[in-house]
């Protein structure tokens, strides 16, 4: 009976597991094969090089620079998105005329085609004809900023575009959390004479913690993978100022055709991401319990 049950379940699970499992096996197997050889698609032959790619990676300042830029990008974009998203959710958490419409309109940045959004921001940031500089000039904040062209501002500019794209997502998660929040604890706190800050800090924030955790987790995982907007806005430039590890692996693999070396860069990121993910996931499930 039990065996029959297992067999029955397996038949339903099988197709997906076969596709995902076989693909993962091929990807892992080939990645390891490629990592220990020096495959370059421009050269015709490749040979076994052992751990040379890994030792090259440890001496590759560009790779470590890209990793630190990935951390700067992901952490600051995620932090700003959480902060803005929380502010937005609290600000709009009241009945008002047009509430549904506002929520609908806020969906737009996250479903717009990212490549197109990146192109729009690129035009906005144009130092001579862009509307960002024009309106900043009108406000007396200077109209000569070279947003995407200077090493100081390029990263900030890309982060602003990412914040624009993903703050609504954080907002919607937190707004759903606020909607589902029971009203009794807040009322009890009010009766007990808690100030509005105390109510927020001691009642709302702890109750919102699971939603905040989910938003944080999904944003940090996906921001590490950000490719589209960086590719169309800067391609990692100027002078590597916005080159994240993802972008660097792309350039090594598909511009320089150093397939082996790109794989090694990738395997290293994935180990770091998986480590990040598993520790965070453990903490998240603890927080939800």
């Amino acid at each position: 009976m039990i065996r029959q049950l297992v067999n029955r379940s397996q038949a339903w699970i099988l197709p997906t597991m076969l596709v995902l499992g076989v693909m993962s096996a091929i990807v892992m197997g080939y990645s390891i094969y490629m990592a220990v050889r020096d495959i370059n698609l421009i050269k015709s032959a490749s040979s076994f090089v052992g751990a040379d790619n890994f030792s090259a990676l440890f001496q590759d300042a560009r790779a470590w620079g890209s990793l630190s830029r990935t951390v700067v990008f992901s952490v600051s974009a995620t932090a700003v998105e959480l902060l803005f998203g929380l502010g937005l959710a609290l600000y709009l958490n009241r009945p008002f005329f047009g509430r549904k419409l506002v929520r609908t309109l806020l969906l737009i940045p996250m479903i717009m085609t990212p490549v197109v959004s990146g192109l729009i921001w690129r035009v906005f940031y144009d130092p001579n004809n862009g509307i960002v500089n024009y309106y900043l000039g009108q406000l007396g904040l200077g109209d000569k900023h070279n947003w995407l062209g200077s090493t100081d501002l390029a990263m900030v500019s890309v982060i602003i575009a990412d914040v624009w794209q993903w703050t609504p997502f954080v907002f919607l998660i937190l707004a759903a959390g606020l909607d589902a929040m029971p009203s009794e604890p807040l009322e009890a706190a009010e009766v007990d004479g808690a100030s509005s800050f105390q109510r927020f800090y001691h009642v709302v924030l702890p109750l919102l913690a699971p939603s905040l955790m989910i938003a944080f987790l999904l944003r940090i995982i996906d921001s590490v993978k950000t490719f589209d907007i960086i590719y169309v806005m800067t391609r990692g430039g100027p002078s590597l100022a916005t080159e994240t590890t993802n972008m660097y692996a792309y350039i090594q693999g598909f511009n320089n055709f150093n397939i082996s070396y790109a794989t090694v860069i990738n395997l290293t990121i994935t180990v770091i991401i998986t480590f990040l993910f598993t520790t965070l996931y453990a903490r998240l499930s603890k927080a939800r319990r």
Partner: peptide, 12 residues
């Protein structure tokens, strides 16, 4: 997992 991880072997 980042999609580029899968892309390199599949492309090759």
């Amino acid at each position: 997992a980042p999609p580029i991880l899968m892309l390199l072997p599949v492309y090759f």
